[in-house]
Design a protein around this nucleic acid. Structure first.
Length: 528
DNA sequence: GGGCAT
DNA sequence: CGTAT
DNA sequence: GCCC
């Protein structure tokens, strides 16, 4: 509120307003509960900046610090808590005195000019353009090779490249995107993901992957509405059927893509990468927090807490012995993690389902079932298996009988959670859910996550729809549904006017009820 | 400036 | 808060 | 962060 937005130089006459306010440092990862409001953050919280005051006067350092805060960035009190370090030093040996050797490879070391360039352009400028020292020889070359050639070493291949090459751009885009001819109906510009077909991989997938890096960072740092905005923006781009490479300015006409993301789209297609994604990719703090969330029961909040309390490895998390009220202990979760990281191929989803359904058939013949989740959306592999079973309404506690049988046969290694059986049948529909870890026979003792859902046939359609995803598709079908006077969940559809549960025996019945064109499961891939 | 799935 | 989609 |  006190500083002007004009570029500020370092003339000695700058004893005015901004430098009078005290600087606040924040070394923890995560968005503070009462985050400072910035109309448009040029530096997001993914830039944690430390200023080396070695060669700067106190006043210069303070000025730079205020500029960081003014631009929406976070100041750290130590170099190791930062991912970007500003220094006026240029001699590698002198800089090395401030940087822990372990940190040298991952920190961006920039001159103060970087910050001024950011302020001038109102954009996050690539810190490598203001690198103070070349990081030592082979190490730098290796690092750049890893981080950049992994996706696109210079700039993504543009359609105009093809035209310049003299080739025709009318070919179906190469890559694994679904044939456009399979598209169930044309793209439309809508804010509802459930109304636009979204393929498994889209024509702008490299851009979507870049935005997903920012989305994931927002999730891990607890910036939830920013997270949602990125999720919806990348979802909107995923459904857009034309390449944005020629005309990145088209992006902000897509519903869900606003000013900020449109700028990032432009940056991606003109410079070959999104700078913020590049910074996040090289941030070891984010990578560490993300790894903690691989443990069952540890989400962004728990992972961040662990990190901010000093944890840097799984061993540290185990050592904390934090009493997370979770079904799986940290040690058990850690023990089976290597198995749960192994993708489940489609044929194994099918064989596990067949085994379970054979057992169920002996208990209650005639149930229907659908493998849902990513499998149903056409993914080549998944990391868990979602089986939705439909049973006649009269049957009770089917899931629990099956569960007992599976346990007796030693198929269940862990019960992550299981709904309590409903003793009173009454008039209520009841959907039973079990989250299990299963060790299928003849699979080398691999642990597999299996979710079992048992729904009465009257709501089977809602259950299948609710467990097929993707997440953005689910959220938007709920938003749309509410606008039409219903409440949707996997346990059924309720008419809000009279609170009556409507019969939804098939997925089609749900789409019809909501006045939505049926979306084939393979076109519900609205997430990155 | 409210709302953002259940 | 974490998990499921 | 974006839409209404």
């Amino acid at each position: 509120m006190s500083s002007s937005s004009a570029p500020r130089s370092f003339s000695p006459s700058t004893a005015d307003a901004p430098s009078l306010a005290p600087l606040t440092f924040q070394d923890r990862i995560g968005v503070p509960l009462h985050a400072t409001r910035h109309s448009s953050r040029v530096l997001s919280q993914s830039t944690r900046i430390h200023i080396l005051n070695d060669k700067l006067t106190d006043d210069q350092a303070r000025q730079l610090g205020h500029l960081v805060v003014h631009l929406g960035g976070q100041l750290t009190s130590t170099p190791s808590a930062a991912n970007i370090i500003i220094t006026a030093l240029t001699a590698p040996k002198r800089i090395a005195k401030h940087i822990h050797p372990d940190d040298a490879a991952s920190k961006f070391l920039v001159s103060p000019q970087w910050l001024h360039h950011v302020q001038r352009t109102g954009l996050l400028v690539d810190p490598d353009e203001y690198a103070v020292t070349r990081r030592s020889g082979t190490k730098r070359a290796l690092d750049d090779h890893q981080t950049e050639s992994a996706q696109h070493s210079k700039r993504p291949r543009l359609d105009s490249d093809t035209l310049l090459d003299g080739h025709n751009a009318t070919d179906t885009p190469s890559g694994p995107s679904q044939a456009d001819s399979e598209r169930p109906f044309p793209w439309q510009n809508t804010k509802f993901a459930c109304k636009r077909p979204s393929p498994l991989k889209c024509i702008n997938q490299a851009l979507v992957d870049e935005l997903e890096v920012i989305h994931a960072e927002r999730r891990l740092t607890g910036d939830s509405y920013s997270e949602m905005a990125y999720m919806r923006a990348l979802s909107a781009i995923k459904a857009y059927p034309r390449s944005l490479a020629n005309a990145p300015s088209q992006a902000d006409k897509i519903k869900g893509v606003g000013k900020k993301v449109a700028l990032l789209v432009h940056q991606f297609f003109t410079e070959g990468r999104i700078v913020e994604a590049k910074i996040i990719r090289r941030d070891p703090a984010i990578a560490t927090i993300k790894s903690f969330t691989e443990l069952y029961g540890i989400g962004p909040v728990g992972a961040r807490e662990a990190y901010n309390e000093g944890c840097r490895s799984f061993a540290d998390v185990l050592g904390k012995g934090r009493s997370l009220a979770t079904a799986l202990s940290v040690s058990e979760s850690l023990r089976i993690l290597p198995d749960l990281r192994r993708p489940i191929p489609r044929h194994e989803c099918e064989s596990i389902t067949e085994m379970i359904m054979t057992m169920l058939d002996a208990i209650l013949p005639g149930c229907v079932h659908t493998i849902c989740g990513g499998y149903r959306r056409g993914k080549a592999q998944s990391y868990d298996l979602d089986i939705v079973v439909g049973h006649p309404r009269a049957s009770r506690a089917v899931l629990h009988s099956l569960f007992d049988k599976m346990k007796r046969q030693g198929l269940v290694s862990h019960v992550v959670s299981i709904s309590t059986p409903q003793d009173d049948e009454a008039t209520d529909v009841h959907v039973d859910v079990a989250h299990l870890v299963v060790v299928p026979p003849n699979s080398g003792g691999l642990h597999r996550r299996v979710d079992l859902v048992f729904a009465p046939e009257t709501v089977y359609g809602a259950a299948v729809l609710g467990y097929t995803g993707s997440i953005v598709f689910e959220r938007d079908i709920r938003v749309w549904c509410r606008s039409r006077g219903y409440k949707f969940s996997f346990t059924g559809v309720t008419r809000l006017a009279d609170n009556v549960v409507v019969d939804t025996p098939t997925e089609e019945s749900v789409f019809e009820l909501f006045g939505l064109p049926f979306m084939p499961p393979r076109w519900r891939n609205c997430d990155a």
